[in-house]
Design a binder for these strands. Sequence first.
DNA 1: ACTGGCTCCTGAGGGC
DNA 2: TGCCCTCAGGAGCCAG
Length: 271
Amino acid sequence: MPELPEVETTRRGLAPHLLGQRITAVEIRDHRLRWPVPLGLPGVLAGQTVRAVDRRAKYLLLRCDAGTLMVHLGMSGSLRLVNAAARPGKHEHWDIVLADGGVLRYRDPRRFGSLHWIVGEAADHPLLRELGPEPLSSDFTGERLYALSRRRRVPVKVFLMDSRVVVGVGNIYASEALYRAGIRPDRPAGRVALRRYDRLADAVRAVLQDALACGGTTLRDFVGGEGRPGYFKQDLQVYGRAGQQCRNCGNIVLMCRLGQRASYFCGTCQR
DNA sequence: ACTGGCTCCTGAGGGC
DNA sequence: TGCCCTCAGGAGCCAG
């Protein structure tokens, strides 16, 4: 599933092909994404030139002259550049046709993704306005986690996955980062000390950077054909490993459910 | 202000 | 070319 590293990898892969390109046509084959794709989109987008390809959280932002196209991949979405002659498959819901003949094609079997056109400052859009800092930016610190978590009783894992606290930490990486930091996922957020939040912020950065390094591999697979699941799988320490041995202490990895999400941890290494 | 629960959707996987 | 059930997951949204 597209986590932040994969969205960033997608951005890096697409940017060189999209920058400076004029959009000649847009075809929406299925409007039923998470939010209905605006009917007027092809009209406003045709003739626009892509000036920048940015990312905010897990949203891709294609900045054009008259506005910004905002794409979310949901959990099963992917974007590929394909040949104009390639027939769209079953779950390939929209195309953006470029002046050079290339086609930016969106595939999303579960349709949890979205497509918005934003006129004006994209950062002011309701979906972006309340977002916390990027995890790989200097604004993301243990001090911030500590300050925001005082008197919060939510499990620290749920807290870490709150996009107002920090963006881009999905279910897999939340479990992995907490394991690396030695913090139990079910510990109340307000009962984690500053020094341990420093460790956690470091762990989040480390996990995301490691995954980003693997993301390059994912993009190749994903551009070449089907995205293979579990590109980061071999590096996972706890996620999906309930009942197996902790790689550090040998005790059994446990699973619990927090905020309707499966959470994995070692009861010995994490406190 | 917080917190927990629900929701969208389809494919995968397990039981039979 | 088996059918049916359950579940996973990003994240917005809402009720209490």
